[in-house]
């Protein structure tokens, strides 16, 4: 409703000014990229992301701070993508996810397909009884890390912290406040199948679990 500026008393007349296409599809329903396969160049993304990492690296004191900055770069994208992807759903299923499982499935399937053209590889719940609030999304080879080799002295770093930020944005936007971090779990040995394997650890706030338990009872 952007046309309803202040001082527009006769807004009912103006209503005709805002026209929707007859098929109900607005610019939000289709990607701006209208090519047949809707593909983008991976190289240009790689260079852009490489610059984003370099930018985040300026004047940071440690790896944790660097990951935090990458996370912050992703967060707004997640918030917006949640709305966008839900808008594009058929009207019947246009509700935001209401349970943790539904939310994680939404991330694993819809979000991943939208961003990377495929689903995430696995979804797991922490088997440790002390941390029932932790869930894991596994990606065997994250697209953002396709060309990145982390130097040995920064081995703790995983640049997929950016994707973790996107996930965090989606969780926050869906009212499931969480902390999401990215961890490399791929082995460094020679014959390793997935050397870049990454786990996104989703740690929900206690109130989310509390609510989840109440819903479960009802």
């Amino acid at each position: 409703m952007a046309h309803l500026g202040p001082g527009k008393a006769a807004s009912s007349k103006e209503q005709a000014g805002l026209r929707y296409p007859s098929n109900g599809k607005t610019i939000y329903h289709r990607p701006l990229n209208r090519t047949k396969t809707a593909e983008l160049s991976q190289s240009s993304f790689a260079y852009l992301f490489s610059e984003m990492v370099s930018y985040a690296q300026r004047r940071v004191t440690g790896i944790q701070e660097l990951e935090k900055r990458l996370n912050l770069q992703g967060h707004p994208i997640g918030l917006k993508l949640l709305d966008l992807l839900l808008t594009r759903e058929p009207p019947r299923s246009q509700t935001r996810p209401l349970t943790i499982i539904a939310l994680l499935h939404f991330i694993k399937i819809n979000l991943w397909t939208h961003l990377f053209g495929r689903q995430a590889d696995r979804l797991e719940k922490s088997s440790n009884p002390d941390t029932p609030d932790e869930y894991m999304i596994v990606d065997n080879e994250p697209l953002v890390n396709a060309y990145i080799s982390v130097p040995r002295e920064m081995s703790q770093l995983n640049c997929a912290a950016f994707v973790a930020g996107i996930i965090e944005g989606v969780c926050d936007g869906a009212m499931f406040p969480a902390r999401v971090t990215a961890h490399s779990v791929g082995g460094k040995e020679e014959g390793e199948m997935w050397p870049g394997k990454t786990v996104f650890l989703v740690k929900f706030q206690p109130e989310v679990l509390e609510r989840e338990a109440l819903i479960g009872k009802g």
Binding site: A46, S50, V53, Y147, S149, K188, P195
Partner: peptide
């Protein structure tokens, strides 16, 4: 395309 590589320096990329 590796953000940790510095131009003209020795290549150390796993």
């Amino acid at each position: 395309k590796n953000p940790f590589y510095q131009l003209e320096m020795p290549v150390r990329c796993d």
